[in-house]
Design a protein around this nucleic acid. Structure first.
Lengths: 221, 221
DNA sequence: ACCTGAACACCGTTCAAGT
DNA sequence: ACCTGAACACCGTTCAAGT
């Protein structure tokens, strides 16, 4: 048996940070189902039990990984002159992080009160406050904006379970084809949407949803 | 070995419908983690493999259970004179179904393109069409409303993982207490929200979010 | 204090064998 | 055609033993 982490090897000692980092690497490459304590241990050249010394369990690991990615994404958002613009920038920052790390959607929408969500909530909240909303509407408005984000998060989560190499357009075309199979009477509207689906731009539509809420907010009294 | 389903016993032969029904019973009583093919088989007095003759896999079973519950909930929604009111009624119908079957939230927000979601989308879409929205905004508006629903779905999903007997208020108080632990500077806004959390009415707030979108819609041009 | 890795408990799914 | 139930593959988590 060779010594592993005890030697001053390439990686140094095990740490929560290194574990989370490695987890993100696996998640990005192989998705949620690819993240296994055995796989993680082998990549870190340690025993699977060692990880439990630094991380409580798999859920905590996923939460930590999500928070790490989103903290970076949010910190990178530039503050704009108008609160509305900062809100848009924040929303897009989260969107882009979810697009780059497709496993985040499921994590975010599955645990809406984890640290990463609070981070988003905090930054949204500050801007909404700056908007000069009446006090009693604050909670509702922030929640509505958060819902826009969780909504796309859910969509990304669904997309993340598809085969990795499937092109986005093929994916949407396949969904549209499924929808076209539905009963023409019972699902008349959905079939209408199906035609628009393959061409639509997720990111643009996401922003349109945020704007819709912002319009509603502007007309609050 | 006694014969089981072959006898004209109390339940009759195995069928997809009976399986889904039993699954819903388990889900309501024991949550997602309680739904096991072994448990399901034992409750149906059959072998675990038998279920696979009627249902493709666990995901399909969960989707079927979700669709069954939501189909009933949506069918029970009365059509109102004004499209806005029907939209509110629809949203509340879904909300109440999620409150009664706490496992549905995760299922819905985790698979936003399953049959149950399309059912919601279809009914929302018809009412939004009746609202007389410009064609190009249709997709965005329906998505925004769907996001409101998925947003609470996510919240319900999170709540469903808690111990079963924990009272709602205790749960919210516990979350509020967690939030109060956060850094006063980094999480100033979230800490503000924490005070309101234990007292707020989820259902009312949910409706307020829907209304916010409807206000935004009314001011589209 | 921190790491090792076998062992435990449990699960979704398959499949050869039955009826 | 439909059901049985043992077997397979895999996983999160624990823990006695090491250093």
């Amino acid at each position: 048996m060779t010594r592993r982490n005890l030697s001053t090897g390439a990686h140094g000692a095990l740490s929560r940070e290194r574990i989370v980092e490695a987890a993100i690497g696996i998640l990005d490459g192989a998705g949620v189902n690819g993240l296994t304590f055995r796989e993680l241990a082998s990549r870190l050249e340690t025993g699977s039990g060692a990880i439990y010394w630094h991380v409580a369990d798999k859920q905590a690991l996923l939460a930590a990984a999500t928070d790490r990615v989103l903290a970076g994404a949010i910190a990178a958002v530039a503050k704009e002159a108008e609160p509305q613009d900062t809100i848009r920038a924040l929303a897009l920052g989260v969107y882009d992080a979810m697009a780059a790390h497709r496993w985040i959607g499921a994590q975010l929408s599955g645990n809406p009160w984890q640290l990463a969500s609070l981070r988003i909530l905090e930054h949204l909240g500050r801007e909404v406050q700056a908007l000069g909303i009446p006090e009693h509407a604050l909670f509702n408005v922030v929640t509505a904006l958060m819902n826009c984000i969780l909504g796309v998060a859910a969509q990304h989560a669904a997309a993340s379970l598809l085969p990795r190499d499937s092109k986005r357009i093929d994916h949407l075309t396949a969904i549209a084809a499924d929808w076209a199979q539905l009963d023409p009477v019972d699902y008349a509207f959905v079939r209408t949407l199906a035609a628009q689906l393959p061409l639509h731009d997720d990111r643009v539509q996401f922003l349109a949803g945020v704007d819709l809420v912002l319009v509603g907010v502007a007309h609050l009294r």
